[in-house]
Write a protein that binds this DNA or RNA. Structure first.
Lengths: 203, 203
DNA sequence: CGTAAAAGAGACCGATCGGTTTCTATCTTC
DNA sequence: GAAGATAGAAACCGATCGGTCTCTTTTACG
């Protein structure tokens, strides 16, 4: 049972991918503070020696996981956009909410919350977060046809809704409120429709 | 240098208060997963024996801290309400945002995020969260005069704004965006004013 | 092939974790 | 005051943490 011969680069990249995937899954499953190297390594089927060959520290590994989560968010959106030419506001909001609730996004929360009290993590996470939001807002500007909303308005609206869905997603694990959540999505969709079309007067 | 004589009840309650306060401060400062018993005890100036006399486990201590955080939120609102008879919408929103950003509220986030992956914590936290939201919504219903918004509408609006401020507060530590945040508060205030007064048509 | 470099396995390290146990100090009750 | 109960201090426990070190396996290159 000899393993297929691989180049060093292939070996390297596949091990790194195993580790990053396992890190995301482990954090999603047991949380950041319980996602020990031991737990990650067991899941990845890699040894400590293998890990520290490619990552200088647990922090490095975790930052790589954050970048991967970020990339997957964007890829999910791009896939949606590709398979459906015209997206309604409600479809956009349902997608955003689903992403906020997705298991990989819990990794994002875990890291953001941990970053508050961990200067090193915060410093490393900041550029990843900045790039993610820039990419999200770029897509929002592209995909949301509108009459009376300028670019800054779209950015404000987009980030406000993301924050709302994020906040909802966090507490929902402990205090779910299905009726409120459904009403919230409908109300948000109505509001966005109304804002983009140009309100009758004042505001 | 003999200590003043205290009853057992006084000793007990003051020690418990020391521990709960220290737990809140420690979680706020270093996060949930680094708020070890050692760190809490050092801050409280209490020994391990003293802690385990009153709390069965770290979980018990942490749940007591959550309840205290919840009580302080409500007390802060009640104090605001008392010192100012008429509250404008903007004042209400600024208060809500300030509470979402307050150090003690970071304790709340830490626990909510940890609760997702910790069934015991989640089970213990759920009733505390349910009571807190019930109390918040009760106050919202009392304090928000309105024409065209029913009670469910107020609940939806209140929780949606809280979620938004919570989401903003979380990412703000890593990715602050002061201009957006200020615009967000203004826009939210305008929206609430408009909703409570009764919109001209449709929606 | 042989040799050097890269990748990976796993024993090992000191520190720290939550929790237990033992013993002392303080308070209550009579 | 003495006796019993409550509160608190601190040594101690096994487990686990992130990280290092040494050694083996796999690939690269002549």
């Amino acid at each position: 049972m000899t393993a297929a011969r691989r180049t060093q680069q292939e070996r390297r990249e596949s091990t790194i991918a195993l580790l990053v995937d396992a890190t995301i899954e482990t954090i999603a499953e047991v949380g950041y503070h319980r996602a020990s190297l031991g737990a990650v390594l067991a899941r990845a089927g890699v040894s400590k020696g293998g890990l520290f060959r490619h990552f200088e520290s647990r922090l490095d590994l975790v930052v790589a996981a954050a970048a991967e989560v970020s990339a997957r968010h964007l890829a999910a959106f791009d896939a949606l956009e590709e398979e459906q030419e015209e997206l309604t506001v409600e479809e956009l909001l349902r997608f955003s909410r689903a992403e906020a609730r997705a298991p990989i996004n819990t990794v994002w929360f875990e890291l953001l919350v941990a970053a508050r009290t961990d200067g090193d993590l915060r410093a490393r996470l900041a550029p990843v977060a900045a790039q993610l939001y820039a990419d999200i807002e770029e897509r929002a500007l592209r995909v949301l046809p509108r009459r009376s909303l300028d670019d800054d308005g779209v950015r404000l609206l987009t980030t406000s809704l993301l924050h709302m869905f994020d906040g909802e997603a966090i507490i929902r694990h402990t205090l779910p409120r299905p009726e409120l959540e459904e009403a919230r999505l409908s109300a948000a969709a109505a509001m966005v429709e109304w804002l983009r079309e140009g309100r009758p007067a004042g505001g």
